[in-house]
Amino acid sequence: MDITAPTIMLTLIWGLAIGCIYILLATGLNIIFGVMKLVNFAHGQLLMISAYLSWTISVSAGLNAYAAILVSMVIVAFIGILVERLTFRRVLGTDKLNEIFVSLGLIYIFENIAMLIWGTNSLQIPSPLSGLNLYFSGVSITYDRVVAVFVVIAALIAFGLLIKKTKIGLAMRATSQIKNTAMLMGINVEKIYMITFALGAALAAVAGGLYGIIFSFNYQVGAMPTIIAFAIIILGGLGSIKGAIVGGLLYGITEQLATLFINGTWGSAVAFALLIVVLIIRPHGIFGEKGE
């Protein structure tokens, strides 16, 4: 097979398209980490729950799939609050490994509840745009993918504005920098934690809805995206939003180029090899700061 310039060009586009959903998931993980210094390994299970919720809402209520995502976003944000209150809040500040343990337990709980409710079959959310394609210079992309890219960009911009321009954002930034001082300045840290976790969960919910429209999913679908999202924020640097975006694109493109030049089985292995090399050179990721 000849690898021509258009083929490589296409491969890069696929890398970008794939990177998008992971970036959304990674941003959610990262904001939670930035503010609460906590890594939620069960983040992908929120994506999974959201995919199922969006499916149920759009199939049973006949709602447009993209509108269904909005509804599921609200529900998942509440689930996020519940999870934070009941579990993570109680282990904050104890041994770092405790968060991994709690989230592993949550993975079992979420996955098997989903299996009890929705069964074991794979599902896909019916999209109003299915079968429609966008053509440009010899490339055709489904509208669903194009929409996904724009939704991700919009979500990230909205999120950025929230952090930069609002009072809550300010409080979140203050908490992420120096928790105790923030507390002294009258910021209700517990409330900020709650909002942060809800926000992260909402981002995962959007990612889940988009995932469910583009791909099929079952109750085990959350595991791989979490690990990839986690690899992305480790690659970019924990707590850095810029890092999540750069890491996401780097991961997506590396994976797809490896798939093109070697074969599909090498995709994730090469991407993880890149991660290991980056960490050996920079132990805190590309944009990571020392200290965490």
Partner: peptide, 23 residues
């Protein structure tokens, strides 16, 4: 939807046990 609810229920139980123990 399921012909055997044993495995998921046991795994939920294990998940809860892990969370409770850690907390």
């Amino acid at each position: 939807g399921l012909s055997n609810v044993g495995p998921p229920i046991s795994l939920i139980a294990i998940g809860i046990i892990i969370v409770v123990i850690v907390i």
